[in-house]
Amino acid sequence: MSSTPAAAIFAAAWPALAMPLAALAGVGLDRRFGEVSRYHPLVGFGTYANFLERLLNRRQRGPGVLAWGLAVLPFAVFALLLRQVLPTPLAWLVDVIALYFALGAQSLIEHAEAIARPLAAGDLATARVKVGWIVSRDTSQLDTTGVAKAGVESVLENGNDAIFATLFWFAVGGAPGVILFRLANTLDAMWGYRNQRFNAFGWAAAKIDDLLNWPAARLTALSYALLGQTRQALACWRRQAPGWDSPNAGPVMAAGAGSLGVQLGGAAIYHGHEEIRPPLGCGPAPSSNDLARAIALVRRTLHGWLAALLLLGLGHGLLLFTGVIHA
């Protein structure tokens, strides 16, 4: 019996393997190089978005919808057309590069570790400064528990936005999908405020980001639950997430806190005003060690998602190679 050449097997399975291999490559680039410090595409996009906002913001929803479309759709459509006209190897490379620039895994982990190290060493002043870089609340008066809580909340929530929702939309649509999500998520961060300037104009940015984040947030919450105290995490998700303002942050942080066995939420000061947020999770308030555990949970979840994508690709590729299905 003659054996099939490995090249023929790989060629037959390539349509199924292209996406998971691109995901591995994009994550690998992010792990190796992190976020580029100069000339990041999102910096240029932010400048363009600010121009559109100054031009179109009449504090009405209609101009906000128009601005969102002008900001996001040309780049997503360009990526779609580019993938269609380029040869397969170059189209695959476009996917890898788009994912690399959209991911924030290494940046999130580095920022979180920069909080965890001084907090564990008892250097509260430095930890306060570092956590202030990644959260919007006032951190100047936080005690050790407050810093740990803010860090854990940010790691869990941004794990979804910066990593898992990005991977989800990459798996769905390659470069066009990941560009669509990342730009929409960036506009929500820029325009999605409930204040006089953005309440109407930023309505579309906030709602579209919620919609795009909805499926990924629930997969992230389920992943957090499966990789920790599963039963408790699922119970916290079911009971506590509906009480949180954000339809996506609630499930993610409730499941993550339940998985870790800590309690988040409570009082926090935003722009000089104290807000009492509903509790998330179950157990004691987090410590510096729990912040390290949250980082480890996000790492395990990332590895689990990559393994799942690769296994799905291999299974799909086997079906393509054996002729059970066709590309």
Rank of each mutant, 00 (worst) to 15 (best):
L56I: 09
A79V: 06
V72D: 03
Q84P: 00
L52V: 07
L66E: 11
R61I: 14
F78C: 14
A79N: 08
T47A: 15
L66P: 13
W68H: 07
V77G: 02
V72Q: 04
R58Y: 11
L52W: 01
A79G: 08
V94A: 13
L56V: 04
L82M: 15
R54P: 01
L70R: 02
P74Y: 11
N50P: 00
F75W: 06
V77E: 03
L52I: 10
Q60E: 09
L56E: 03
T47D: 14
V65H: 10
L86A: 08
P89H: 05
V77H: 01
R58G: 09
W68Q: 00
L93I: 14
F51N: 03
V85T: 15
F75Q: 03
Q84L: 12
R83A: 14
V72Y: 01
V72I: 12
A71F: 04
R59T: 06
N57M: 08
N57C: 05
L70Q: 00
A91Y: 07
E53A: 08
L93F: 13
L55F: 08
G62Y: 00
A71P: 02
F78H: 01
L82S: 13
R54T: 05
R61Y: 00
T88Y: 11
L66S: 09
V65F: 13
L55A: 13
L66W: 05
L70P: 01
A71H: 05
G69M: 06
P74C: 14
L82C: 14
N57K: 02
L80D: 12
P63V: 07
A67C: 13
V65P: 09
G62A: 14
A67M: 11
L80Y: 15
N50M: 13
P63K: 10
F75K: 04
P89W: 06
Y48E: 03
A76D: 13
G64M: 08
R61C: 04
